[in-house]
């Protein structure tokens, strides 16, 4: 699923205009990006949390030449899935269609008689 699919779903399901849907999706992810760039963590209940991790710089080495190269400090993003979503991804409720059989507890005749 792409950004454009999310936009279409908003248009179809909520009846917002194409422009509004595009701006909404853009704003959601831009605001999240801005927060992360400011070093802020994000927590979306039910989805998960994004943490900004700071990595120290260090003296690296080119393994081929042995040349010493300074590696600059950098920041990365860690995402931790929320409990609800972690469980839903791992155990989709309707995983096995066999688990929810149609109304066949009795005989076909019995169902026909209930009129």
């Amino acid at each position: 699923m792409l950004k454009s699919d999310l936009i279409n779903i908003l248009v179809v399901k909520r009846g917002v205009t194409q422009k509004q849907a595009e701006l909404t999706i853009e704003t959601v992810f831009e605001s999240m990006k801005d927060a992360l760039c400011k070093g802020e963590n994000i927590e979306i209940r039910g989805l998960g949390a994004f943490h900004v991790k700071h990595y120290e710089g260090y003296q690296g080495r080119n393994p081929k030449t042995g040349e010493v190269i300074p590696v600059r400090p950098k920041r990365g993003i860690l995402f931790r899935t929320g409990k609800e979503l972690r469980d839903r991804v791992n155990h989709p409720e309707d995983d096995e269609p066999a688990a929810s059989p149609a109304q066949v507890p009795g005989t076909p005749d019995g169902a026909a008689g209930a009129q």
Partner: peptide, 23 residues
Amino acid sequence: VVEMVFDTIKETLERGEKIKISG
């Protein structure tokens, strides 16, 4: 609307489908 965005994302992932947000 924001709720629907995140619900859609969760439902999609639950189905095992990936979500690609460019940028």
